[in-house]
Write a protein that binds this DNA or RNA. Structure first.
Lengths: 133, 133
DNA sequence: GACCTGTATCGATGTCCTTCAATTCAAGGT
DNA sequence: ACCTTGAATTGAAGGACATCGATACAGGTC
């Protein structure tokens, strides 16, 4: 149940540090992979689930603590958790009768990096239109 | 055409620095607003559009440079640009016959911050299960 | 073994989203 | 005024997604 079909999202990590999204045009394959992760974040229920999981002291949460926090059926919550897991944002483990989820910070770190523009960016202020070429 | 219906997404910026998503459970209203932005990023075409706009030297791109980069109809590209704009990720301006788009770095900065966990996080290593109460 | 509890999967349904062709709108040029 | 070009809007069609009830599965307990 653990490493089922986690999104790949490029094994860069090696070649420097993340192409960036804000620094160079994304190619088609990259954009498809990245979009899967952002799509997983593009739902209020999943965002709340993720934040509940991520902010939990101890690092993990039992599903039985998540489900009653929403006015949704148990299958629906289970489905959302599955999507977050398939996006590589969380992982889970069964312990006895209960299933525990935890954050995979590698993925949120990667996203944060992708959305961060290079430090020295000369602020494309507009109105100053650098007019390159 | 500029400031039409940009998502609000909390006027925090003042109260410290971004609640975080990874540090505390998101409330319902926050999650709805945030989800709108992530949903806008949850499409490969929009990600490529955004990266083409953001990475452009000079800070802005003419629609006429974006449309031919995709095998999609002009109305479809226009629709995706509209969604990105409504999410507060980009803005645009007409100059003569052409319309130019540019990145609103405030929003990507905010997202990056939201996805960044506090520095000193004691790495919830799991298997070490801190077992708080 | 039979039973109970917690969780995941299945199938169906209604809604939202992506996409297009057709049209409209904006701004210049003739 | 008319025409042309670039871009946004409209309306419709198809597919994807969120949600549910019913069901299956996993691990305990008796």
């Amino acid at each position: 149940m653990s490493k089922q079909d986690l999104v790949v999202l490029g094994q860069d990590g090696a070649e420097g540090c993340c192409p960036g999204l804000l620094t160079a045009p994304l190619d088609e394959a990259q954009s498809v992979e990245l979009a899967k992760v952002f799509k997983a974040l593009g739902d209020p229920i999943r965002l709340r689930l993720l934040s509940m999981i991520a902010s939990r002291a101890g690092g993990e949460v039992c599903v039985c603590d998540l489900t009653p926090a929403f006015e949704l059926s148990q299958p629906t919550i289970s489905h959302h958790l599955k999507l977050l897991r398939q996006a590589g944002l969380i992982d889970c483990e069964r312990r006895g009768t209960w299933v525990y989820y935890w954050l995979l910070p590698e993925m949120t770190d990667r996203l944060a990096g992708i959305l961060t523009r290079p430090a020295g960016e000369p602020r494309p202020d507009r109105t100053t239109t650098t007019d390159v070429s």
